[in-house]
């Protein structure tokens, strides 16, 4: 189980990496953390002609606060995000999600940008980006463009990033002062990709849900916003009736993929259960009572 032959270039600047992307197009793969790419290479599921190693591009690393925005370089390792005081203070949803990202050795190497750019439907970071309304900054040799998370995830491993673009930065709006967030997922074993998962982010006033965003992942081909569920939720007190209404509405939002981990029916059921639990927790975190 050895990787096929390929060329390897270590990019010495973002411009260099972009130049190589322009030159090689689809024959090239960006090697960031490599925690998903390397298995596919070892299994010969992917046979690129050239790997562009961006790991030495320090300009793509780091976490900083820019006003109300947390800026995370695409090459920032999961472990750095997990341990960041800025992230825990301003993006508690991400801090809550991060321990679910695989295992320690993977988090030490894997990057937040790599996870978002790959867009595995069961991955945590794409869902967090969508839930928090992050902006994904991509760059090609002509310059940068910003893509709202809502427009970034197109489908199974498909994103709005063009072949010649590099994801360079993720800009998360800081969690608003009155907001709460909840991350939950179900996987068979700790660190596995999720079978069902939810990010809830928004405002609860007393027992009323004011402005909550619900993002579901793992059951669909990409993280999705539960528009109907949200409509049934916002403006209502959190109660058994609301829960039932949200559950019913969720059926219009989700069309789960059946796979080895379970049927569509089970995944829909689990997403409903998680919705209820996430809102119980959100209300409780907002200081409300159930």
């Amino acid at each position: 189980m050895k990787a096929p032959k390929f060329s390897y270039v270590r990019a010495d600047s973002v411009e260099h990496a972009l130049e190589l992307l322009d030159k090689h197009g689809d024959d090239a793969r960006i090697l960031a953390g490599g925690q998903s790419l390397m298995p596919t290479l070892n299994m010969r599921l992917s046979q690129p002609e050239i790997l562009i190693d961006i790991n030495r591009l320090n300009e793509l690393k780091g976490i900083s606060l820019d006003g109300d925005t947390v800026v995370i370089g695409a090459l920032t390792r999961h472990v750095e995000v997990l341990n960041s005081d800025i992230v825990s203070a301003h993006l508690p949803l991400v801090t809550e999600a991060m321990p679910y990202v695989a295992h320690v050795a993977i988090r030490n190497r894997g990057t937040i940008g790599g996870s978002i750019a790959l867009s595995d439907p069961a991955a945590e970071m794409p869902a967090c980006a969508l839930a928090l309304g992050a902006t994904l900054v991509v760059q090609n040799s002509g310059g940068k463009r910003e893509i709202p998370a809502e427009q970034f995830f197109h489908g199974l491993y498909e994103t709005a990033r063009a072949e010649n673009e590099l994801l360079v930065e993720i800009r998360f709006p800081s969690q608003k002062k009155d907001n709460v967030s909840v991350f939950m997922e179900l996987s068979r074993r700790h660190g596995d990709y999720a079978i069902a998962g939810i990010c809830a982010y928004g405002k609860v006033t007393g027992e009323t849900i004011d402005d909550m965003r619900l993002v579901y992942f793992a059951s669909e081909d990409r993280p999705v916003i539960g528009e109907h569920a949200i409509a049934a939720l916002n403006g209502h007190a959190w109660s058994e009736e609301t829960k039932d209404a949200v559950s019913a509405a969720l059926e219009n939002d989700l069309d789960p993929m059946a796979n080895l981990n379970g049927s569509a029916a089970m995944k829909l059921h689990l997403q409903k259960v998680l919705t209820g639990r996430a809102m119980d927790t959100a209300v409780s975190r907002a200081g409300g009572t159930l």
Binding site: R188, H190, L260
Partner: peptide, 23 residues
């Protein structure tokens, strides 16, 4: 897990789920 065509569906350690320490 085999499909109807006799193809093994989960022949990796990511898909064939073994017991790990946490559970």
């Amino acid at each position: 897990i085999y499909d109807d065509y006799g193809q093994l569906q989960n022949g990796t350690m990511a898909d064939y789920v073994t017991p790990m320490m946490s559970e």
